[in-house]
């Protein structure tokens, strides 16, 4: 029984992901220092892109951080454009990669899409930041490497976390299985 994600469902899932862009950072604020390391706002955007496709991923990537800044003041306005650019690319790339990559198994698809999306996001936002904020003073390489160096624990966490979330969603039948197989479980 293969069922596709309907448009309405995609839309509502995107809404839920946008909401999580605000809720997750707040939940993590209870843990000191976690926000900077775990980058909680990226997770719903990536998942939205992976599950719903690039259009919705893009929307989530833009609306998530902006709405969060508007409603809670985090991220601060100075950081916002850079972050929104990054998450927008995350959403688009994740969705696009999931559409193109089909390795016949869920986890490889997810890892490839995630890594590509994160790399692209960091590079493009790094370039944008370099152009906007320093008008060519610091080299692009410096910006890009800086963002990787400080954020690598968060990246690792995302790579561990996100496939686990998607797998759990599939197992709970909340999203259609990417590669449905005959169930062997008889109750």
């Amino acid at each position: 029984m293969k069922h596709q994600l309907s448009e309405v469902k995609c839309a509502v899932l995107t809404a839920a992901s946008i909401a999580l862009c605000i809720v997750l950072p707040m939940a993590f604020h209870a843990i000191p220092n976690a926000g900077n390391i775990f980058l909680p706002m990226h997770i719903p955007v990536l998942i939205c892109g992976l599950v719903c496709g690039w259009r919705y991923g893009l929307l989530c990537g833009i609306a998530g951080p902006v709405l969060s800044a508007v409603l809670t003041g985090m991220p601060p306005a100075a950081v916002l454009p850079g972050m929104a650019a990054e998450t927008a690319v995350f959403g688009v790339a994740a969705g696009f990669m999931m559409k193109t990559v089909h390795t016949k198994r869920l986890f490889p698809d997810l890892y490839i899409s995630l890594i590509t999306a994160i790399l692209l996001g960091k590079v493009i936002s790094g370039a944008a930041k370099a152009l906007i904020f320093s008008a060519g003073q610091y080299s692009m390489a410096a910006w890009v490497s800086a963002s990787f160096i400080t954020a690598w624990p968060g990246l690792l966490l995302q790579l561990a976390l996100i496939p686990a979330v998607v797998a759990a969603l599939e197992k709970s039948k909340l999203i259609p299985a990417r590669y449905p197989k005959k169930s062997g479980r008889f109750q």
Binding site: K171, S172, K173, R185
Partner: peptide
Amino acid sequence: KESPMSFS
């Protein structure tokens, strides 16, 4: 060894 999500 079953997944908890697969239960009722």
